[in-house]
Structure formats: C-alpha cells, structure tokens
Design a protein around this nucleic acid. Structure first.
Length: 598
RNA sequence: GGUUCCGUAGCUCAGUUGGAUAGAGCAACAGCCUUCUAAGCUGUGGGUCUCGCGUUCGAAUCGCGACGGAAUCACCA
C-alpha cells in the first residue's frame, strides 16, 4: 500500500536541504490533509521553514512546491495560499491505491500478533445486587468495542469480567428477600432474576430509610442513626456469617446470585458482549495480603498501633492509603493489587486495561503507584480507560432511588421504536416476521450503541431517553442505511448481469466526489491506529459517519448502474464495494451489525 | 479546603504533536422522489469557542488567573 505522506515528507526534507543547505528535524514538517475548500490533496505548512529560508512564506512555499513537482513522483501540481503549500497527488496514484484496496482482505487491520502485544482488558464488572443500567451499558460497549479495535491493531486481547459478587450490598438484597420475599423466585414472579434481586435491594433501602427516620425522631443524630438502624446491623451480621461460611447464608447467596447470573447472561447476549474469562470477587477478595506482608518487610508500608497497614503517598502528592484494616481484613485496594499480580503472572500479558468510570481515577492512580513501589516493572503497563458518567436530563442516576435507566428496558425500548419507525416508513413490507424481528433489533441496537460510542469516552454525556435517540443524521441507522444502499446496488447489478471487472490503469476520475471518497477511504488505517492508541471507539464512530456521508453525496451526484460508460461505471462500483467493506468493518469494530437491506 | 477533569451554535457532539473563513447532526425554515432505497441530498439562518491576561508569525488547542460545573480525597467498592 502506498503511503504518500512518507514520500512527501522525505522529499520535503530533501527540498530544504537542497534549497537552503540546512538539515531539519522531520517533526518540523507539518503534513496535513488539504481542506475541502482548497485545491489539492496534501498540505505542507511552511511557516516553520521561513527562518531557514529567510524568505517570505509565499516564496518559500513556491520554491518547495517547484522542487517537489520536479523531484517527487507523487506530486504533479501545487498552489500556495498564504503559508500553505497545497499539493496535488497524481490521479493515477489514487487509482493505484483503490486498486490495492480491492485486493486487501481487511484493509487497515493488522494480522493477529503481527506487531502486537498481549493485552488484558477488564470491563463490565457488575455488582450482583441489581440489574445493569445505562452506566453499565456505556462500560460494556466501550470495553467490547475497544477489544475489537485492539485486535484489529494486531494485538492479542483477553477480555475479562470481575464480578463483584460479595459484600454488604448483596447481603442487603438477601436480607430483604429473607424478610419479605415469601419464597418468591424468578419463575414464580415472572421477573428476570437480576431485576427480582434488584427489587429487594430497593426494598431494603426503603426500610433502612424508614428506620433512620424513626431513630432521628427520637433525637439521635442522622449519622448515628445510620449506624444503629436494626436492619443495617442485621445485614452486617449476615456478611460476617457469609465470611464464616455459614451454610444457610451461603446457600441463600448462591441461589440469589444464580438468579442474577441468568439475568446478566440475557443482558450480555442482548448487548452482544462477551468475555474470555470471568473472575468472581468471592474468590479473589483475599488476595493481596501476602503483598502487604512483602511491602511491610521492604519498608514501603507501615503499620499503625492498631495494626492497620498504610502506605504514605504524600511525597507523590497523594494521601495516605489504607491497605489492611485493623482487624486484618483486606480492602478493595488490597484485592486489586493481588489480582493484578496474579493476572500478569498467569497470562504474561503486556498490558492490563481497566474500563472503569472516572469516579475511580484516584484509585487507579494509587494502584499503579503502589505496584511500582513494590517493584513491579509492569506497573506502568496498567491503563485506566476512564470514561465519563452518563447523566439524565434530570441529573445523576441513583439505583437505590429508582431513577436509573435499566439496560434491558432501554434495549427493548430502542427496538420498539425502531419497529414503529420502520413500519411508518413502510420499510418492513418485504420482510416476514422473522426477518422483521431481526432487522428492527439490528437497527434499534445500532441507534443505541452508536449514540453512546460516538462520544469521546473521557467525556461525560447526557442521555435523554425520549429525545436523544434518532434514526436520522449522525446515527447508527444512517450508517446502516448507507450500507444497505450499497448492498442494494450489488443485488441490482447481479440481476442485470453487471459484474465488477479489474480496474483499468489509465482510468481517470470523472467527478470530484469520487476523489473525496477515495481520500476518505485512504484515511482509515490511520484512524484505526489512533483509535487503538487513544483507546477511543469514538474515533472510529466519527470516521464511519464521515465516510457514510461522503458516500451518500457521491451516490446522489454520480449514477452508478445507470452510468453508460462502462469504465466509469466499473470504477464507481469498486468505490461502492470498498466503501461498503469499510463501513461494515468499522461498524463491527463498534460491535454493531449492518443489514443487507432495510 | 487539596488534587484531577470539564466549559465550543437553542440541544447533543466533532475539532489529537498550535495552522487557512471553528464543523456535523437535531430542532426551525426553503427546495429535490416517472431515474440505482427520500432512514437520503441541497440551501438559509444560528458562535465573544465561559471571561481576562500572556507565549507565538499564528491560540478553541499551550501557560497563568477568575468564574461556572463534575469527580475524588473513607478501616465503602
């Protein structure tokens, strides 16, 4: 595959050496895409050179432009606007690029392990006391998409899920079920297991609040009341029994967790995400204690009079952090230290990416710092994909207060809307029921996934369930529609016996929409690589939107099957084919499917 | 209070080593289907890039300050 930029960079360095007898660093040469409103393909910013040339930007640009036209094969003409040197790449090279593209299997992607690392990515990581909500949806979609993107960048990826299946939160649900459940089960209630368990979590909280209120009315402070409410004390006792492996508590715990897992399984399937390995916190929460011992011996950690163990990070601009409670039990950090060591030992991975919300930035900062202090060289290879919180127009979501957008409801709602919308447009007429179900599911999910993934992960986002979801404009369905259009052309071509033939070497581009489409296709490998480096599916999402928009303009302006000149028609068919391939590939990187028709 | 992140059109968002007249979509308005899928295309209006100062040939982008918002600083996870 030709990469014009490399050659132009090299020639520009030569030009400066020849013209001004100075060798410069290659990072002084700024090469960028020429803006649409100007003529040309590739632009060099000449301002950095004027100190060397000691001439005006215009003269400098002209001198370099002339040199390139004479000495660089790919450049055939140029124009200068202010300090910008706009170069035009010879059309035959664009065509050659397109030709290479027709032979490429998955253009832009690197084969497995080609240049790659072994990367473990942890995402989802739900609690087992309640169903998944919109926040988890963002997490799952980011994690899954990122794993695809990293694979396409030639890395080996291990997707893992760490299920938070123990602790006070699940005891709350268990206790509430014990008290008010009347032996209800998912089967008897007809509810999904995770939803049923979540209902008891809410029930617990309501009762807890009631008890706090009663206590404060007797003159006890709110803080004290929160500690003394009988129901919270009962929950804590239950947690102790769990840790003591009390058979009754354990079997209740196993039963309710199994309900939740059934529910999660369904949600994951619906969202189309999966994992190579699932860890359970009940099996990992004791890890890390030996590390603490080691740290104490090395003098990195210290013990207080009450036996609790701490690390002092004040010299790193952070605080002191607890690593073992005074009763010797471990905390979240202890466990994370332990599991990180385990994972690197077990998988010998090069990186470990945690997909976790930005509310835990501090935690991960401390985590890698402690590991570095303990002497693990891979501490620098821990990465935190810190994504922003999803808020509703009404503000933050609170699961205890029932103001969350439930993941299952959300997906169902999207599919329902997709069905209504498609029906209204008369798009479902040719489909039978089975096909209809499949297509509306594909469209509804695309709308949801794309809406969430197109936003820069680092940024917070607001989600309006009523208005946010659209099927026009910068949306998943728009991109799917573009793909379906392309497929439709090839069905028609098949019916009329038109076939793709190899591209002619001397084929000229007949329309500038063809040119801008080729240029957009050309950008894909760089976008894919950037998306991997920046851990950002949003780059792919915005690119595939640009590509679709570009294609629709081309489609509108250029007849394809109706084109009578068979060479031009063939070129346009190839452009359509390649665009379709990259749309499909990009959408797959986002975890979104594309339909043959819609 | 300390630390970190954010502030771009009415709304949701792009804008990545500082580069040309800051871009899309939605919403509003006006056009385009006897022609390959109108979930499309074209056009109009809409901006003090929160504000100020600085660095620079050049700042939405970098630095400092102010204002506004978020997260975090737990013997929670």
């Amino acid at each position: 595959m030709i990469v014009f930029e490399e050659f132009i960079l090299k020639s520009t360095l030569e030009a400066i050496k020849t013209l001004y007898s100075t060798e410069i660093q290659s990072n002084l040469v700024q090469i960028q895409e020429t803006r649409k409103e100007f003529e040309g393909d590739i632009t060099i910013v000449v301002f950095p050179f004027i100190k060397i040339s000691k001439k005006s930007p215009e003269i400098t640009a002209n001198e370099i432009g002339n040199y390139l036209v004479q000495n660089c094969n790919y450049v055939y003409q140029f124009n200068v606007i202010k300090g910008f040197l706009n170069l035009s790449v010879k059309p035959e090279y664009w065509l050659e690029f397109l030709k290479d593209l027709t032979f490429a299997d998955s253009f832009g992607t690197l084969p497995k392990n080609s240049s790659g690392k072994r990367i473990m990515i942890e995402y989802s990581s739900p609690n087992t006391n309640k169903p998944l909500h919109l926040g988890h949806v963002r997490n799952n979609l980011l994690g899954y998409s990122l794993s695809k993107i990293l694979q396409a960048n030639g890395h080996e990826v291990i997707k893992v899920n760490l299920v938070n299946d123990r602790g006070i939160h699940i005891c709350k649900s268990m206790l509430a079920w014990q008290k008010w459940g009347n032996d209800i089960t998912p089967q008897k209630s007809g509810l999904k297991g995770d939803h049923l368990v979540g209902d008891f979590y809410v029930k617990f909280d309501q009762e807890y609040k009631k008890q706090i209120k009663q206590l404060t009315e007797t003159g006890i402070s709110a803080e004290e009341a929160e500690k003394r409410a009988p129901i919270i004390i009962e929950a804590q006792e239950m947690l102790q029994k769990w840790e003591a492996k009390n058979p009754e508590v354990i079997s209740l715990w196993e039963m309710m967790n199994s309900w939740v897992y059934e529910g999660f399984k369904e949600t994951y399937l619906k969202l189309g995400v999966d994992f190579d390995r699932v860890y359970y916190e009940s099996q990992t929460y004791l890890h890390g204690k030996s590390l603490v011992q080691e740290g104490l011996e090395k003098g990195i950690l210290y013990q207080r009079a009450d036996k609790s163990v701490w690390i002092d990070l004040t010299s790193d601009g952070l605080d002191e952090k607890l690593l073992l409670r005074s009763d010797g039990t471990s905390v979240y950090m202890t466990q994370d230290l332990g599991t990180a060591v385990q994972r690197f030992e077990e998988y010998n991975n090069d990186e470990l990416i945690y997909v976790v919300g930005n509310e835990q930035n501090y935690h991960f900062q401390v985590l890698s710092l402690i590991l570095a202090k303990l002497g693990y060289s891979w501490a620098k290879d821990l990465k935190h994909l810190s994504y922003g919180m999803v808020e509703l127009p009404s503000g933050k979501m609170k699961s205890r207060e029932g103001t969350v957008v439930d993941a299952d409801d959300l997906v169902d709602e999207m599919i329902k809307t997709a069905r209504e919308m498609s029906q209204e447009l008369g798009k479902l007429d040719e489909f039978d029921e089975l096909q209809t179900n499949e297509i509306v599911k594909m469209i509804g999910l695309a709308a949801l996934k794309y809406f969430i993934l197109k936003v820069d992960p680092k940024k917070g986002m607001t989600f309006d369930p009523q208005e946010s979801i659209d099927f026009n404009g910068n949306t998943g369905p728009f991109i799917q529609y573009t793909y379906a259009r392309i497929r439709s052309i090839f069905r028609k071509a098949g019916e009329t016996g038109i076939k793709l033939s190899p591209l002619n070497n001397n084929q000229a581009l007949s329309n500038n929409k063809e040119g801008s489409l080729i240029k957009t296709l050309y950008k894909f490998p760089v976008i894919l690589s950037d998306a991997g480096k920046n851990l950002s599916p949003a780059l792919i999402a915005n690119y595939v939107y640009d590509l679709s928009k570009e294609y629709n303009q081309f489609y509108h302006e250029c007849p394809i099957l109706k084109e009578e000149n068979s060479e031009i028609r063939n070129l346009r068919l190839h452009l359509s084919e390649e665009t379709g391939k990259i749309i499909k590939l990009s959408m797959n990187l986002l975890g979104i499917n594309v339909p043959e028709r819609m």
